Amino acid sequence: MSRKIKLLWDFRGPDAKETAKHHTIHLKEFATIENLTFHEIDIKENNPMFVSAFITVDEKDMKIYRDALKPQRGEIAE
């Protein structure tokens, strides 16, 4: 069974939530254009001034996403 990896981009400030939501649009576009699979694309509101956009992918695809999109961090998804 392959692990799932969550790749994250952090946004801070009063517009963090809207910026993170907009970033998810580009994540979906990239996956579609490149014909890549993913499990989930969403945002995580840590607090009103700190929001993360993320995509959850299979470990086998992680390097493709990582190299092309340069996430700020990654973690093993639950």
Score class of each variant (00 low, 15 high):
Gly13Trp: 03
Ile5Phe: 02
Ser52Glu: 12
Tyr65Gln: 00
Met49Cys: 05
Phe50Tyr: 15
Phe11Thr: 10
Ile43Trp: 06
Lys63Tyr: 08
Met49Gln: 13
Thr24Gly: 04
Ile33Cys: 00
Glu34Gln: 12
Val51Pro: 07
Gly13Leu: 08
Pro71Asp: 07
Phe54Met: 03
Lys28Trp: 00
Thr37His: 09
Asp67Trp: 01
Ile33Glu: 13
Pro48Lys: 08
Lys4Ser: 14
His26Ala: 11
Asp15Ser: 13
His26Gly: 07
Ile55Glu: 01
Gly74His: 11
Asn46Gly: 02
Glu75Asp: 13
Asp42Ser: 15
Lys44Pro: 02
Thr24Val: 03
Asn35Pro: 02
Arg66Asp: 03
Tyr65Trp: 04
Ile33Asn: 07
Gly13Ile: 05
His23Cys: 05
Ala31Lys: 02
Pro14Asn: 13
Phe38Ala: 00
Ile33Leu: 09
Asp10Lys: 12
Ser52Asp: 07
Lys44Asp: 15
Ile41Ala: 05
Phe11Leu: 10
Glu18Leu: 13
Phe54Val: 00
Ile5Pro: 05
Leu8Tyr: 09
Glu78Met: 12
Pro71Ile: 03
Glu59Arg: 08
Ala20Met: 06
Glu75Tyr: 06
Leu7Ile: 04
His26Arg: 07
Glu45Gly: 03
Lys28Pro: 00
Thr56Leu: 04
Ile55Phe: 01
Val57Pro: 01
Ile5Ser: 04
Pro14Tyr: 12
Thr24Pro: 04
Asn46Ile: 15
His26Trp: 12
Leu7Thr: 03
Leu8Gln: 13
Ala77Tyr: 11
Glu59Phe: 05
Gly13Tyr: 05
Ala68Cys: 07
Leu8Ile: 15
Ala16His: 07
Arg12Ser: 14
Met49Pro: 02
Glu29Gln: 11
Trp9Gly: 08
Glu29Arg: 10
Gln72Gly: 14
Glu78Arg: 13
Ala20Leu: 06
Ile55Thr: 05
Glu75Met: 15
Glu45Arg: 10
Ala68Thr: 03
Ala31Leu: 04
His23Thr: 04
Arg73His: 09
Ala77Asp: 14
Met62Lys: 13
Asp67Leu: 06
Glu78Gly: 14
His23Asn: 10
Arg12Val: 11
Asp58Lys: 09
Gly13Phe: 03
Arg73Pro: 01
Thr24Arg: 04
Asp10Gln: 15
Ile41Asp: 06
Arg3Met: 14
Glu78Asp: 13
Arg3Glu: 12
Ala16Asp: 10
Thr24Gln: 05
Leu8His: 08
Phe50Met: 09
Tyr65Pro: 00
Ile76Trp: 10
Val51Ile: 15
Asp15Phe: 09
Asn35Leu: 10
Ala68Gly: 01
Lys60Ile: 10
Ala20Thr: 07
Gly74Val: 05
Asn35Lys: 13
Asp61Arg: 00
Phe50Gln: 09
Ile55Ala: 06
Leu69Ser: 02
Asp15Arg: 12
Glu75Ile: 10
Met62Asp: 01
Glu45Ile: 15
His39Val: 03
Phe54Ser: 02
Lys21Val: 15
Glu18Ser: 12
His39Ser: 11
Glu59Leu: 08
Lys21Trp: 05
Asn35His: 14
Glu40Ser: 08
Ala68Leu: 02
Phe30Ile: 01
Phe30Cys: 02
Ile5Met: 13
Phe38Gln: 00
Asp15Lys: 12
Ala77Ile: 06
Met1Asn: 12
Arg12Ala: 11
Asn47Leu: 08
Ala53Met: 03
Leu27Arg: 01
Leu7Gly: 06
Asn47Ala: 04
Thr24Asn: 09
Asn46Cys: 09
Lys28Ala: 14
Ala31Gln: 07
